[in-house]
């Protein structure tokens, strides 16, 4: 029987962790773009866009990410669209992330006093100019800590992509545990690696929070 050293296990896990990071980045960049567009549409038009926005956010916040992954993988296949696990996982995580980020950022924009909109309106600024020069610079400052905090949730959420066969950290751990018969060691390593990825981000979020609090006094 082949013997696996701890280093063999770790090396393979590190290789798989790269895919966790790549998937997280796709989810975050894609989700940020989609979420940002949703928010701008809502701020610009209001009315029925509000309802669409709220429905979208509630739909993705109110269902498990696991179901969203299943639906994006099996659902698209049912519709006759053959997609790779890459596309399915990226799609589901992007939509999931976009709903949460849109809602987080909506709260940040809502925290900007109404007087800022009124003052910039009365100075004849257009909607785009108001957002770009008055509202978003202020909203951004309060948005950074919760946004970075949510990034950690997304990274851990990518573990669920393993159920549709996407080989990332968790799935790789599962496979390695099956061949090495050392599930405890393997999953301890897996947990440690998530921690190594997430902890610095959490620290950074806390640092940013302190910094923006000081800036806002």
């Amino acid at each position: 029987m082949v013997q696996f050293s701890n280093w063999d296990i770790l090396r393979n896990l590190i290789f798989a962790a790269e895919w966790t990071i790549v998937l997280s980045l796709i989810a975050f960049v894609g989700g940020g773009l989609v979420g940002g567009c949703l928010l701008v549409a809502r701020l610009w038009r209001g009315g029925w866009v509000n309802h669409v926005f709220n429905g979208y956010v509630q739909l993705f916040q109110g269902t498990p990410l696991l179901m969203q992954l299943f639906l994006s993988y099996f659902g698209l296949r049912l519709l006759g669209v053959e997609v790779s696990v890459w596309v399915s996982a990226s799609l589901a995580l992007t939509l999931y992330t976009s709903a949460f980020l849109a809602e987080i950022w909506r709260g940040c924009v809502a925290a900007i006093p109404k007087g800022q909109w009124e003052a910039s309106t009365s100075l004849a600024l257009s909607f785009g100019e108001q957002l770009r020069h008055v509202i978003l610079p202020q909203a951004l400052r309060i948005a950074i800590p919760p946004t970075v905090g949510f990034l950690v949730q997304v990274i851990k959420g990518t573990a669920l992509a393993s159920v549709i066969g996407f080989v990332e950290l968790t799935r790789a751990g599962n496979m390695i545990a099956n061949v090495t018969y050392k599930p405890f060691t393997v999953f301890a390593f897996v947990g440690l690696m998530y921690f190594v990825i997430c902890y610095p981000i959490s620290l950074y979020a806390r640092y940013l929070e302190r910094k923006t609090h000081v800036a806002r006094r």
Binding site: P113, G115, A119, S120, S122, L123, A124, E129
Partner: peptide, 30 residues
């Protein structure tokens, strides 16, 4: 609105911009 200016009870200055840039913002953009 370019013909009608307004001043508010709560000032509503843009807190992230210097005093000078508060004054310059609208003329440069609009």
């Amino acid at each position: 609105r370019q013909r009608v200016g307004m001043i508010f009870q709560s000032f509503n200055l843009f807190p992230h911009l210097t005093v000078g840039r508060n004054v310059m913002l609208a003329p440069t953009l609009v």
